[in-house]
């Protein structure tokens, strides 16, 4: 059905690993079985010794020994299987890494192709040419930046002069700061104005009586 989410794909490698793992599981089960048998035989041997049946006891012990060596063998096989599984899984990862490297490499190549040196040189040359053309056109129209180079230089000079002046003025202002003044007295010190009118003496008259040349 279309509305079920797509199931993860099982690849051939998955299947191979799966089969190996199944073998491994079977071996593990086999080991469990053998361990159980060994336990049983040990008990039987003990029983037999108790009952004085030495032959029987030896038979059990021999058979037990055999199972034990089989277990050792299966352990080796298990090791092999696990090793193989590990190798396959690692190879798969290596494959992925190589695929990633390949992809990255091809992208890098593509990008490098787009950025060949002569191509860039040509683009820069073109750019310069176009700029010159623009300048030419503006010169022809008498626009440019409006001023010649020497004029620009003069403007800069004047600007610097102004700046310096401004700096000097500022420095002066700094040094000419008003020294501290005494506080203004808070009480009125002026005598009150007399209310009665005072006849104003005319000092000019006194002065007039004096000789002009003293």
């Amino acid at each position: 059905m279309g509305n079920t989410p797509s199931a993860p794909k099982i690849t051939a490698q998955d299947r191979a690993i799966f089969q190996l793992k199944q073998q491994r599981d079977k071996l593990k089960d086999y080991q469990k079985r053998l361990t159980f048998v060994i336990e049983k035989q040990t008990n039987l041997a003990r029983e037999a010794v108790k009952n004085g049946q030495n032959d029987k006891a030896k038979f059990y012990l021999r058979s037990k020994k055999q199972q034990e060596t089989t277990i050792v063998k299966t352990c080796e096989q298990l090791d092999n299987l696990e090793g193989l599984i590990g190798t396959i899984e690692f190879k798969l990862i290596e494959k992925d890494v190589i695929y990633g490297l390949e992809q990255g490499n091809s992208v890098l190549k593509k990008l490098n192709n787009e950025m060949k040196i002569d191509k860039i040189d040509k683009i820069l040359d073109d750019l310069e040419e176009e700029r010159i053309k623009v300048d030419e056109v503006s010169d022809a129209l008498g626009m440019g930046s409006g001023l010649s180079k020497s004029e620009e230089f003069e403007v800069d000079e004047e600007f610097e002069k102004l700046e310096q002046e401004l700096n000097i003025v500022e420095q002066k202002n700094d040094t000419q700061q008003v020294p501290e003044l005494p506080e203004v007295p808070k009480v009125d010190v002026l005598p009150e104005v007399p209310k009665s009118e005072i006849v104003e003496q005319q000092p000019s008259r006194v002065l007039a009586n004096e000789p002009i040349a003293s």
């Binding site: 079920t4 989410p5 199931a7 993860p8 099982i10 998955d14 299947r15």
Partner: peptide, 21 residues
Amino acid sequence: IKQGRAQLLMDDEGGIGGVKI
């Protein structure tokens, strides 16, 4: 499996033996 997060693998006898999550 309904969530699309697993896929079963059959063993030799046709039973379900494993899973990939």
